[in-house]
């Protein structure tokens, strides 16, 4: 799935959070969205997900508005740190993953064998078979993120959006999580993830979309190594970035 954003702007209480920019994400791309805190990363993600309406401009996914039901059903979303899920929320891992099929089922369609197969496929992809009967409250941060990724995959998305997906995870869980994303992208899924970690983009993504209210740059990894402006923006060490890029 591809994304085209035209002259996108978003203002809140008269303040421009995102100001007039256009970009395109191609089918099968793996894009990291980066920028300083308050620079509009999460707002851009909310616009792409259809959770907020642009003040000006349009977003199209595969040529259709993002609010189109057919588009929404082909999108998966993994929120930051488990979204708003209460630590004591009384649900098992299996129940949470099955909820990923809800939008496809609508009100009256029963949970079929095909739905069960999609759920099991997502569970197997994440390797979380042993967690299924455990309550969400008994999971570590890394396990919770895997469960939420499995829930997103249960709807068999063609495009995946993630908001700070490894925030709060230990290095091992972080590497495992990124390896899963890499595998999904290798299988053809378009992935867009928001992060404040410039190294994550250097190591993981195929291209970067860098913004500070306006689009600073968008393209292959080299874009943020060559721009002084971006260097100041992300406060990262240029040589270290180049090392990541070279490797």
């Amino acid at each position: 799935m591809s994304i085209k954003a035209h002259h996108l702007s978003f203002a809140r209480n008269g303040e421009n959070i995102i100001h007039e920019f256009s970009f395109e994400i191609k089918d099968g791309d793996y894009v990291g969205v980066i920028g300083p805190n308050g620079g509009g990363k999460t707002t851009l993600l909310r616009l792409l997900l259809g959770l907020a309406k642009p003040t000006h401009g349009t977003i199209e996914i595969d040529g259709r508005p993002v609010t189109d039901t057919r588009v929404r059903r082909e999108i998966g979303y993994v929120p930051q740190r488990g979204g708003n899920l209460d630590p004591l929320f009384p649900a098992t891992v299996r129940e949470v993953i099955r909820s990923g099929r809800t939008a496809r089922l609508g009100l009256f369609k029963p949970f079929s064998r095909a739905d069960e197969r999609s759920v099991n496929k997502a569970i197997k992809a994440l390797g979380i078979e042993k967690l299924l009967s455990r309550p969400m409250s008994h999971l570590s941060g890394g396990e919770r993120q895997k469960v939420l990724l499995a829930r997103a995959l249960a709807c068999e998305p063609k495009m995946l959006f993630l908001d700070e997906p490894v925030d709060g995870l230990d290095p091992l869980s972080r590497d495992q999580f990124y390896a899963l994303l890499r595998q999904l992208n290798d299988d053809g899924m378009t992935i867009v993830f928001v992060t404040h970690d410039v190294h994550a983009i250097a190591e993981q993504a195929n291209s970067a979309l860098c913004l500070k209210h306006q689009l600073v740059c968008h393209g292959r990894k080299a874009c943020y190594i060559d721009k002084d402006e971006l260097q100041d923006l992300v406060h990262a060490d240029r040589e270290e970035l180049r090392k990541h890029h070279d490797t």
Binding site: G50, L51, G83, A103, C155, F161
Partner: peptide, 22 residues
């Protein structure tokens, strides 16, 4: 009972549910 699945999905996370088209 009719809305159970939708209400459950929204209870887990409003944003994810809305992004999915609920």
């Amino acid at each position: 009972l009719l809305l159970w699945r939708q209400l459950f999905a929204v209870a887990i996370d409003e944003d994810s549910a809305e992004a999915a088209g609920i």
